[in-house]
Amino acid sequence: MKLLLITAVKEFENEIKQLLKKAAVQSFSYQNVKGFKNSSNEEVDSNWFGSEMNETDSILFYAFTAKEKVDALFELVEYFNVEQESLSHIHIAVLNIEKSN
């Protein structure tokens, strides 16, 4: 059993749902979250947003699933990210679950 975590900008919500469906992940949870980037190390002139603190409407998906489905989803997300013309990507991580009930 694996715990799958996916984060992205809110605009990718429908695409992530489709990727989960293609990877046969039958059940998952998600919620809206605020993404945050501290740009204080960047020069304000080179910062697109023109400030040091940036918040973004984001989304967090999580699911308990089998390893085989995780591997398939990683491949789908990698392909999706390569095809993106925007700077934003889907971020995915997986954690091992030692015990579950």
Rank of each mutant, 00 (worst) to 15 (best):
S39K: 15
I59F: 08
E68I: 00
F36D: 13
V33P: 06
K22R: 10
V82C: 02
F61P: 07
N38I: 10
D71R: 01
E85S: 07
N32E: 02
N38E: 12
S86W: 14
V70A: 10
L19M: 11
S46L: 08
N54G: 00
N81Q: 04
D71H: 03
T56M: 12
E15S: 02
F80K: 05
A72M: 04
D57W: 15
N32S: 07
N32F: 13
D57C: 02
W48R: 02
N38R: 07
I16W: 14
I16A: 07
F64S: 00
E11R: 07
E11C: 02
I59G: 01
F28K: 00
Y62I: 04
D45M: 11
K34P: 04
K37C: 14
Q26F: 01
E52K: 08
L20S: 04
Y79I: 05
L60R: 03
Y30V: 12
Q84L: 03
E52T: 14
K10R: 04
K67E: 08
K17V: 11
K21R: 03
L19C: 10
S46N: 11
V82Y: 05
A23F: 11
V77L: 01
N14M: 05
F12L: 00
F64H: 09
F49D: 06
V9K: 00
H89C: 09
N81R: 05
N41Q: 13
S86Y: 13
K10L: 09
F49S: 13
A23R: 08
N47F: 15
N47M: 15
F64G: 05
S27Y: 15
G50H: 09
S58V: 11
S58Y: 10
G35Y: 13
L60D: 04
A24P: 07
N81H: 03
G50V: 06
L19K: 08
E13N: 02
S51Q: 14
A72S: 03
Y30I: 08
Q84K: 04
Q84A: 00
E11I: 13
E75Y: 10
A63F: 12
E75S: 11
Q18A: 04
